[in-house]
């Protein structure tokens, strides 16, 4: 790759890349340089939500974020939802809820859904169905499992202490 060096803070770790071209997106660096393939490239146009990650705590499209513009930001991908050092196979509560609620079909949309849901769950109050639907409105599921996804996120919000 031609370009300039950049260091990105991903899931709490500082990760240098030797050369990133100006047009390279965060999604490309996550997948091709760091091997973090949780975020998916569905449309590369900001529409589908499969590439959603959080930057400084807010869900955004990694396909529309240029890598060089993400220096000094806190980036969290689906791989970072489970705290570092947790036992192998451990799941975050929202992941557990989707798994138990059979809310995953092919799974392509799931990493983006988990990131959006995780951001929603940071609010304290239990979430209503309408709040969850609005919060996940930027994440498309081609298998159309929305009902179970929404139910699982509502139940995860009710289970919160």
């Amino acid at each position: 790759m031609t370009g300039e060096p950049v260091t990105l803070r991903v899931n709490g770790a500082e990760r240098p890349v030797a050369a990133v071209a100006p047009w390279t997106t965060l999604l490309t660096v996550l997948r091709d340089e760091f091997g973090l393939t949780g975020a998916k490239r569905g449309c590369n146009q900001g529409v589908c939500g499969a590439c959603t990650v959080t930057i400084d705590g807010e869900p955004v499209r990694s396909c529309l974020s240029l890598a060089l513009n993400c220096a000094d930001r806190d980036i969290v991908t689906v791989e970072g939802l489970v705290p570092a050092g947790a036992p192998a196979g451990a799941l975050a509560p929202v992941q557990q809820a989707l798994a138990e609620g059979n809310a995953v079909q092919c799974g392509f949309c799931t990493p983006g859904i988990l990131i959006s849901a995780h951001a929603l769950l940071r609010r304290n109050a239990p979430l209503t169905v309408d709040e969850v639907r609005a919060g996940l409105s930027g994440n498309l599921c081609r298998c159309s499992g929305y009902k179970k996804i929404v139910e699982a996120v509502v139940s995860a919000s009710e289970a919160r202490p």
């Binding site: 900001g46 396909c63 529309l64 974020s65």
Partner: peptide
């Protein structure tokens, strides 16, 4: 200018 990139980067990707 690069602001949010929501339109500009989508057009660059295409």
């Amino acid at each position: 200018c690069l602001a949010g990139g929501a339109t500009l980067v989508a057009m660059m990707n295409a």
